[in-house]
């Protein structure tokens, strides 16, 4: 088993959210989801809002992220994200509030709102709710 796994970390500005040896990671790349297994070539890419799936043996762990980037070096993968929460720890109430707030802002269409920002907020909220619902 040991030769199939590699070191994987998710780091946010607030703390190291996750750190373990894993076998497979699926992450939301800018141009679509991609998977990383052991001995992947070194690379760097941008992540968008979406779901990170970690596999260790038969176990699967899900994280919601609002984007950042992923770096793969010799058998080590690091995700730097501004936010990342494990599916079981997502605050669904808060996500719902954020969704409603964003929807309201988009509906009002007042001049002083930032539409891309409201859309991004909506996307983040929906993403959190979707991932929280997996478990």
């Amino acid at each position: 088993m040991a030769d199939k796994s590699f070191k994987f970390e998710i780091i946010t500005p607030e703390k190291v959210v996750y750190s373990a040896d894993v076998e497979h990671v699926k992450a939301p790349g800018k141009n679509g989801y991609f998977g990383v297994k052991v001995n992947h070539i070194p690379f760097l890419t941008i992540l968008k809002t979406g779901k990170i799936t970690i596999e260790i043996g038969k176990e699967k762990i899900f994280f919601a992220t609002s984007g950042g980037f992923a770096q793969v070096t010799e058998n080590k993968m690091t995700i730097l994200a501004e936010t990342a929460e494990e599916a079981t720890r997502i605050d669904v109430e808060r996500a719902k509030q954020a969704r409603d707030r964003a929807l309201k802002r988009l509906k009002e269409k007042s001049v002083d709102i930032n539409i891309p920002r409201a859309e991004a907020a909506l996307l983040r909220a929906l993403n959190r709710m979707e991932i929280a619902a997996i478990k």
Binding site: F43, T45, I46
Partner: peptide, 15 residues
């Protein structure tokens, strides 16, 4: 041989 995807310039925009 380090792969940047997309190009470094585009990554910089996010970074």
């Amino acid at each position: 041989g380090y792969v940047y995807e997309p190009k470094p310039e585009a990554i910089l925009k996010v970074l």
